[in-house]
Design a protein around this nucleic acid. Sequence first.
DNA 1: AGTTGAGAATCACCTATGTGAATCCGTCGG
DNA 2: CCGACGGATTCACATAGGTGATTCTCAACT
Lengths: 262, 262
Amino acid sequence: MNEISTQACRGDNPLIRKLGRFVPLTEAEREALDELSRKSRHHVQGSDLIEEGDNPRAVFLILKGWAFRYKQLADGSRQIMAYLVPGDLCDIQIFLFETMDHSIGLLSDAEVVKIPSAEILDLMDRFPRIERALLWASLVDGATLREWLLNVGQRLAKERVAHLFCELYVRLAVVGLVEEDGSIPLPLTQEELADTTGMTTVHVNRTLQRLRKEGLISTPKGRLKILNFPKLAEAGGFSQEYLHIDGPPIEQRLRKHLAQLE
Amino acid sequence: MNEISTQACRGDNPLIRKLGRFVPLTEAEREALDELSRKSRHHVQGSDLIEEGDNPRAVFLILKGWAFRYKQLADGSRQIMAYLVPGDLCDIQIFLFETMDHSIGLLSDAEVVKIPSAEILDLMDRFPRIERALLWASLVDGATLREWLLNVGQRLAKERVAHLFCELYVRLAVVGLVEEDGSIPLPLTQEELADTTGMTTVHVNRTLQRLRKEGLISTPKGRLKILNFPKLAEAGGFSQEYLHIDGPPIEQRLRKHLAQLE
DNA sequence: AGTTGAGAATCACCTATGTGAATCCGTCGG
DNA sequence: CCGACGGATTCACATAGGTGATTCTCAACT
């Protein structure tokens, strides 16, 4: 495992795709991001990128495959706190901490770039606009975490699952990972869904069956097909605002703010 | 309400107290922070500092009293996502968003400073060390949020409440708000505890009684007294690491990182 | 002292979800 | 074609925690 796979990373670089929604990127900026992505390595499913207690000296960028952030309790129960899909960086500033307070694992084989913290700092120095976009992305991560807390704390089983599926669909759409048939990859076992939503595998199973029976989704082989997005969104109380995927690019907004300053 | 109360803010400024744990502050920096705090206003219990949907153009600093971050669902249920105690700032960078995705309310009368985003940016420009400390504080907020998700997603009622109480105790200790008798203010109704832990008022009540009966806590009039911290921490699976309140100041750590850079 | 109201405590009953297996099913290596 | 194994399903049963309403307490106000 872990052999270097120096691949080209054409224009379909998911990081560029994602950040490009926040700030319009110049050629130089795109080049810098592509440069970053060239050093990806292959990691195998089941391995951890970082483990709780490690001293984090780098940030990981997912180019392909899925990762997830989680915490484990003494009694073996586990809470999944985020999914990282292509284009996602695991907490940009986490290297300021002395030790990781959570782990990051891989749900599938993945192409991952390990970026030493120094390199991230350097990149942000050279490209302030990229820094803004990254900062913005990490704000969205925080907003997502808040939404998850709401989900687990207040919603019923069916709502929780429906909400999660809607979120994943929208996020994957942003990086262009929805198939023509409208399905998305979903490399999750029911156990992982359970650890995400704070329920049991058994109850996840029951809930999925209900969603299928109601014609909201179908789940072919490691994929998820949402048959009726509006209804699923309604069932889960989902509204994509917290993902901040549309709206004017951050640059304009910031300029407005600064303008009204003095 | 909301009359300006230009008060002196002696050395007991909770913000200085808190940030001082992260970076050793120079006289100029302390002065700048004190300056900020001089413009506090009185706000009354029950009012909202910001509401979901607002365009956030300022950050709030709590000097006295408690605030809380929450989201409300259509069906009226509410999830509390954070408590803000003296010395806490509500998300520093949130003004980058076009609209707030949550509200901030007051649990008690409070002294609050409203800091226009421009002023925060300016402060961070002039004092990079303060910027670091603020950034650090916001990282801790994120870590706390993750811990809450774990709490609500995986722990049983008693554990949830115990964990929450331990966290609040430690955070208040940092800003010197523990009385000699070991009790802390707790301006929360059982309903608010319920909306925090994802349970019902009825069940919160049952759980509190159990904790009292087991000799772990007592709850005199708007206060909380932890009778046996180690046992309560054990009951809640609490470990204060995620609050990052000890350990070397951020400055040293960052210097180390930068040193090992080139 | 009497009234009011917010919050705490109780009550009887209910159900969404958890437990702990067992069974089934498809895939993959041999 | 034959295990074997990681999931997905199912089952029978248990319970933590939810519902909705009532009552109690005590501090504030008249």
